[in-house]
Amino acid sequence: MGKLSPKWIALCTATIGLAYTAGYIVTEPKAVAVSSAVQANVNPVQTQPSSNTSDQSSQSSSTASSSTASSSQPAQNKSGYKDGTFSGQGMNRIGSVAVSVTIKQGKITNVQITDCTTSYPQSLIDPLPGQVVSRQNVSVDNVSGATESTDDFVTAVTQALQQAKA
């Protein structure tokens, strides 16, 4: 590649620099300050200073998935997960997978597929909940022939765990 013009190098570097300093856990939308802030707070147990207009939970509104949390006495553990049962959903063109994930003492103790409406049978992804419990994370094996169902499952569990971390 020849040399990109200094103008474009500067613009790209500045764009990435500015966006990067936002940090991945940061909270922004100042745009909501102008309109009335409608906060999609799906996590009832979370309390945040009001200066942080956006919280992690609003991520679920942008990915437009439904994830809800029901946890009575959240206790933060080493894993960063609160105890409770959390649900998440992954969807794409072939259908959706919903899960509920139970955390006890910071550990993933149970993962259940609560709904599976993909064009493939649920039996294909039945082994995945066990893998999440034994590995304590979402890096499950790819299921050949059911990649999209697997992706849905991973998305669903990831969202549930994000709720647990919030």
Binding site: T15, A19, E28, A31, V34
Partner: peptide
Amino acid sequence: GVWVSVSRILYSAIRF
């Protein structure tokens, strides 16, 4: 018709 101040990520994406 109004100036809206936006987050860094949104601003940098729109400017680009």
